[in-house]
Design a protein around this nucleic acid. Structure first.
Lengths: 246, 246
DNA sequence: CAATGTATTTCGGAG
DNA sequence: CTCCGAAGTACATTG
């Protein structure tokens, strides 16, 4: 989606109130991201209530109905509105006013600009299409094509090998000939995945009566802190890998 | 603080990589907020690890060292860096690259732009503080100002009194001189809060060797059915009270 | 729909 | 400094 003239981004510095309102409202109508910067006051009324006196702030309005007000400090927005709100940008006595509200729970955020020094709108091509292309099967293929991605000299022996605890994603050997169980996850893993690998390892150790401990490796794009700790406790490993190559 | 020509905001659409890098780096040097928008990939490595394939994103760099990467969805940034990082914007084989890192814990965020469609810097002055009402502290003040809101002749003796189970919100006496433990919640409470009061009451009874049973009162705007049952079972009470007077 | 648990939680305050 | 708990927590998962 783009503007009438095909430009996916519009930007003006020191616009008049009318220009700023027009850019913002047209951007919202188009489903674009809208940003406004300038001296403003902020009022919130809803689950709690807050007011913010005049100051320079950066306001971002997203097409999914979220709103963010940022100052020059802190990772958190100083005020915000969750997704699902209705954004409205209008003029009130010559001032640009942003109002963002949602019905349940009743919440309303109002930003009143003394002056807008910058207004812009950005058309975003949804990246979810791009990131959802990687399935666990893609990840499996990727590793079978290049086992070194797990670790040097890793050798897959079979996929979907059965154990009393279920089927192992990839079953193989490391450089020293030790049995390796690889569990694949297409996205960030938590403690549940650690338990899963652990059950496979335990089941195989009982099944094979193997003297050497079986190695468990969890392959996923990322891992939670807690899961990483658990994994370390159980002497297992994590390998960061995306389901698809860039 | 402003730019050389006195303009507190600089903005360009469809800049060359060199122009984008120059605006960003000069903005950072000046202590300004910097935003970049365009098609990019994002890599994070630190407490966790993640990568994002190509997509349109909005990158905000703050002078306090925080970095935020937003897509068009969600209130939360899709990637970020906490305050205290060093931001760097440089060119690599014609691409604008943002690198934001901090030493402890070792964390690094890298945004590599295929194309920057918008670059801007904003000089911010924000003198005012946010005032927030409707918090648990407001509820505490409200009761200390008018203890009868809990019940007639209730007398607060101390706040944050320590017990082996943690600090009690308000510790006091009722009309008959019996010890009362008041637990405050700024919003609707569930069974967890009942367990909390119960632990305080138990801990205090053991601590004080009190003959008379200690009373436990849960003060909140409302309570779930299940929590009300539990509270009744344990012989404790609920008082409905908003954190702020209407 | 509500209830539950995690988070690169963030943020503040107490010790 | 760390630990601990609240948050307008946000967010995903599950029943």
């Amino acid at each position: 989606m783009t503007t009438a003239d095909g430009t996916p981004v519009q930007s003006t510095t020191h616009p008049t109130a009318e220009e700023a309102q027009a850019i913002a409202q047209r951007g919202l109508d188009r489903g674009a991201m809208v940003t406004l910067f300038g001296r403003c006051t902020v009022d919130y009324e809803g689950r709690a209530a807050s007011t913010l006196g005049p100051g320079d702030r950066h306001v971002m309005l997203k097409p999914d109905g979220s709103a963010l007000v940022h100052t020059d400090e802190g990772q958190q927005p100083v005020n915000w509105q969750p997704p699902g709100c209705d954004h409205e940008v209008f003029l009130d006595e010559g001032h640009v006013v942003v109002r963002s509200e949602r019905p349940a729970p009743e919440e309303e955020l109002t930003v009143t600009f003394e002056e807008v020094t910058h207004a812009a709108s950005f058309d975003v091509t949804d990246p979810t299409d791009l990131s959802l292309t990687g399935t666990e099967e893609d990840l499996r293929q990727r590793i079978l094509d290049d086992p070194d991605l797990v670790e040097p000299e890793f050798t897959p022996l079979s996929t979907e090998r059965n154990t009393p605890a279920g089927a192992v994603d990839i079953y193989g050997e490391d450089a020293d000939g030790r049995t390796v169980v690889v569990e694949l996850k297409r996205r960030r893993v938590g403690p549940d995945a650690v338990g899963q690998v652990d059950r496979y390892v335990g089941a195989l150790e009982r099944d094979l009566h193997d003297d050497a401990a079986i190695r468990g490796i969890l392959v996923a794009p990322s891992i939670t802190d807690r899961a990483r700790e658990l994994l370390a406790e159980k002497g297992m490993e994590f390998v960061a890998l995306e389901p698809t190559a860039e």
